[in-house]
Simulated assay, not measured.
Amino acid sequence: MARIGMLTPSSNTILEPVTGKLLSGIAGVTAHFSRIRVTQIALDDASSAQFAAEPMLGAAGLLADARVDAIVWNGTSGSWLGLDRDRELCRLLREATGMPATTSALAMTAAYEALGAKRIALVTPYTADVNARIAEGYGRAGLTVPLRLASGLSANEAFANVPAEAIAGMIARAAETPGVDAVAVVCTNFGAAGLAADAERRYGVPVLDSVSVTAWQALRLLGIDGRPLAAEWGRIFEIV
């Protein structure tokens, strides 16, 4: 039996049900959630302050009461605030709880490395300036982003209301971009997880949804084989 503790943005309504459904495919693995207040995604100081370490450490302490086996920040803020910030958060989480830790942004980076993906088509519900900041960070990591698609939203709760048809259209456009190695859906409150495997079969390009990839990396942290999930949730689960 394994328990995965997940730190969740307060206004997120996607990742908990999706993660629960996804992990139901692995016997004995459960996810447990603790929330921190996150309501807006933007590049201003007020938005950045939502992702301070202190509330995350408090929420992680509550998860530790449940004797979870790993702590995961199931949010993509490191994609625009910088991976070093997420690495420092993981260090603090390990120090405070004694448990392995990761984040959604670090999980996506691990997925790119595992797939050998260098050219990433980006799909998000965010505004164009947030997407540009993500692409800048990817550039510093040696990746190129030939296409950036954004829904133009900043209210985190609203991301979950983007219709599946619209998300599928964005994924299709991204997957059809010449020369891309992977499509990255960067947001854990965007309804793309259930679309990824079908899109991969249709377009022949890996589609990396943040919720699914975060679960993939959490399973890897605990040495759990996620391959039974690949057919339904995407080819990234074939990599253990």
Results as ranks from 00 to 15, higher is better:
Ala2Thr: 13
Arg3Gly: 13
Arg3Lys: 15
Ile4Arg: 01
Thr8Met: 14
Pro9Arg: 02
Asn12Leu: 07
Ile14Thr: 14
Glu16Lys: 02
Val18Met: 01
Gly20Tyr: 00
Leu22Cys: 06
Leu23Glu: 03
Ser24Asp: 15
Val29Leu: 12
Ala31Asn: 10
Phe33Thr: 11
Ser34Ile: 05
Arg35Asp: 08
Arg35Thr: 13
Ile36Phe: 15
Gln40Pro: 00
Ile41Lys: 04
Ala42Met: 10
Leu43Pro: 02
Glu54Pro: 01
Glu54Val: 13
Leu57Tyr: 01
Leu57Phe: 05
Gly58Val: 13
Ala59Ile: 12
Leu63Val: 13
Leu63Gly: 11
Leu63Glu: 11
Ile71His: 07
Val72Gln: 06
Thr76Pro: 02
Gly82Arg: 08
Leu83Glu: 13
Asp84Tyr: 13
Leu89Asp: 02
Leu89Asn: 03
Arg91Glu: 10
Leu92Gln: 12
Leu93Ser: 06
Glu95Asn: 11
Thr97Pro: 08
Gly98Ser: 10
Met99Gln: 14
Thr102Arg: 10
Thr102Gly: 08
Ser104Glu: 10
Ala107Tyr: 02
Ala117Tyr: 11
Arg119Ser: 14
Arg119Tyr: 03
Ile120Cys: 09
Thr124Pro: 03
Thr127Cys: 12
Thr127Ile: 14
Ala128Gln: 07
Arg133Val: 05
Tyr138Glu: 14
Arg148Asn: 09
Leu149Ile: 12
Leu153Phe: 09
Ala158Arg: 14
Glu165Ser: 15
Met170Ser: 04
Met170Leu: 09
Thr177Lys: 06
Thr177Glu: 15
Gly179Asn: 11
Val185Asp: 00
Val185Lys: 00
Cys187Ser: 15
Thr188Lys: 13
Phe190Leu: 15
Gly194Ile: 00
Leu195Asn: 01
Asp198Asn: 11
Ala199Trp: 02
Ala199Cys: 05
Gly204Trp: 10
Leu208Asn: 03
Ser210Tyr: 08
Val211Ile: 11
Val213Gly: 06
Ala215Trp: 08
Gln217Val: 00
Ala218Lys: 02
Leu219Asp: 04
Leu221Ile: 10
Gly223Phe: 14
Ile224Ser: 06
Leu229Lys: 03
Ala230Pro: 08
Ala231Cys: 00
Arg235Ala: 10
Ile236Tyr: 05
Phe237Ile: 00
Glu238Ser: 14
Glu238Gly: 05
Val240Asn: 14
